[in-house]
Every structure is written in structure tokens, then in C-alpha cells.
Design a binder for these strands. Sequence first.
DNA 1: TCTGGGGTCCTAGGACCC
DNA 2: TCTGGGGTCCTAGGACCC
Length: 396
Amino acid sequence: MSARILHVDLDAFFVEVCRQRYPELRAIELLVVGGRRDQRGVVQSAAYAARRYGIHAGMPIAQAVRLCPAATFCQGSFVHYRDASRAVRAVLERFAPTVVMASLDEAYLDLGGTDRLYPVSLLPVAERIRDAVRAETGLDCSIGSGPNRMIAKLASDRAKPRGLMEVRAGWGEGFLAGLPLAALPGVGPKTAARWAGLGLTDVHQVQAMAEAALARLVGGDAQALKRRAHGHGGATLRAERLPKSVSRETTLSRDLRDPEELEAILALLTARVAGQLREENLVGRTVTLKLRHDDFHTVTRRRTLETATDLDAELYEAARALFRGAFEGVRSRNRGVRLIGIAATNLGLAAEADLFEPPARQRLKELSAAVDKVREKYGFGAVTPGSALRARRRGR
DNA sequence: TCTGGGGTCCTAGGACCC
DNA sequence: TCTGGGGTCCTAGGACCC
């Protein structure tokens, strides 16, 4: 019984979801999603026509405007993406018992054990999946098939857009031999540049080299690199695990120097993190503050609490203490703050009610539960942290 | 008007314990 | 007044992915 993984990758997902939600964008070929043209931000996704101007995901919006002034920019909405992603997932689940969403626009399907159903090729079923996704969600996708996740994903990369590509068991090494090292997942610009400096640019070079020789070049990365170059990888999909972190951060529309203003924003971000923790029945024990100075120097400060929590007040107390320490650094460098963020990590499942909980903490819990109810009905903005309100009242 | 926001994983050093 | 390791927890930073 062979391992068979499909990787389904939606084509220009964010762009197409925006077109579905805003019909006036349907006729616009040069569509770029990610933010408004006058705002700080980067491109999230660009229509294929806009990519011909050199625009790609991750590029600063201002640069995209310069490359293609005629482009239309659209902000997009997470809720729309999430709903579209769920609709796609529902389609995929009819075709495989295990479907793992790797992100909003990517999924892995485990078709292990289907040798009798599809004895030779998975291309016919991949085609049916592609057509069903198109018919039921209006979205196009590309699908790669391979003996493990890595190969299936590399195959779908090469099938885009609207294509199918199959790499059968035993074909992996030959398929990989034609790729640059930078195509491998986990090999980003920094790593690729470092290896290129050593004369290593292509997968076939690594395939041909003994591991010991490779280790002399790249050190401790040799074994893992060798494995990947030969196409070895996990053959089955792991079921979903607990998240490792919950975070909120924001790049400010203008750099700020006033700590009170920043603390008010921090209170809002912390409330959102706490709300998500409760929604997902999680508690966090480590609180991490992130500040980006206006020269892009970025600092994190973290603190591990005695007990894990999902309460706004407890998370915020730690967040504010961390902020006050980190803000000294901003002040001494005489900079402004460009970005502020907060994360909860060291997550665990929220425990059942604790009989020995101090009454004060019990009241905080009840308050949080009440706040969550109101927000569920009227949206997050219906209840605002006091510190954020105070800042607003001062006219900020 | 340069450079988002949500994540995961890894490394390195220090404290502390056995 | 010389000198171990291993393991775990913690903090800070960085690479990478979509």
C-alpha cells in the first residue's frame, strides 16, 4: 500500500474571493489585494495580469503602485476568506478521509490505501476534485500528487494555474533533480544565498554529493538537506494539533511616541488575543510583547506567568509591564514606534473550573464570559477595554 | 509614503538541578 | 581552588511560510 498525498492549492485565492464579494471588481484585470494604495502595507496577492508587471505577494504596496499605476487595490476581508476556505474544505472532505488545511488557500489530502480504487494514477480523481471545487465554490485550484507532502506541494507549484501534476512513487528523485534548492520548502532567500556562496544552487548537486562532503560545506544542515533532496518525507498526514500561539499585532498608520496612546492600543490587542483564547478554549502562560521602532529595529520581550490564563486583565498586566520596559529602549534611542503586538504562547487547554480559585479571579472569569456573550451578539467593538476608552476620550 | 499579519520552527546562552 | 555532563526551563532573535 503506497503513500499518496494530494496538495490542493487555490489559484490567486484572495483576488478571486474579492471578485466574488465585490462584483464591480470582476471586470478589472489589474487587481491587487492587500491594502489601499495610500496605506502602509504589502501585497497579499495579485491577479495574474498584474503579476506580469512584476507585482508579487510580499511587495510593499507603494512599490506595486510605482510598477503599475493603473492597478486597482482592494483591501479584502479575513471573514470572506475564511468562509470561502471552509466551503472549499467541505468539498475536499468528500474525496478523502483526512483533509489538513495548511492555510486558508492550501490543503493536503491523504489518499493512502486507495490503490484498489485508483490502481495507477490519481490524476482522474484530482481532476474530479478540481471540477467540483470550481462548480461548488467558483474557485480555481491546482493539484499536485506525490508520495509525501513535500513532493505533492512542489508538484502543485509547477501545475499552476488550474493544472494537475502527478509524481508517482519512484519518480520523486528524478522530479527533484530538475529543481533549484530555493524551490524546496524551508529554503528561503537567506539560506539559498548562503548556499549559493558555497557553489550549491541545485538539488541535483546535493543528490550527487556524499553526506560527509555536504556536511563540510553546510555543517549540521547536511542530513536534513540530503533527505529532502532525495525526496524523503512524512508519508501520512498528522491530524490537527493544538495551536502554538495566538497573537495580534498592528502597524500604526503613523509612528507614535506617546506611551499612553500605545498602551491603549496594547489593551485592545490584548483583549482580542484573550477573546480568541477563550473562544478556542485555550490558556496561555507566556506573554510576548513586540515593538518595532520606526527604523525597523524590532524587539521582543516575554514573560512566563505562574499560571496560564485567558483573562484580559492578567494578560494585560504582564503585557503592560513588558511594554514599559521595552519602551525605555525606544525612548533612549529617540525613535517612534511603528508596530506593536502581543502574543500568548505556551498554550494549553483551558481546565475545568477550579474549586480553589480566589473569588477575585472567579469574578474576572464571570466578567469575561459576559463580555464574550455581548461580543458574540454585537461584535468585538461593542465592548472596549477601559484604557482604550480613556485614550479615546482624550481625543486621540 | 518602503517594508502586513498570522503563524511555525530553530538556535544559543544562562539559570538551575541532579 | 579544579572541573564534569545531561536535562529542563526560560528569554531573545531570526528564518521561513502563506
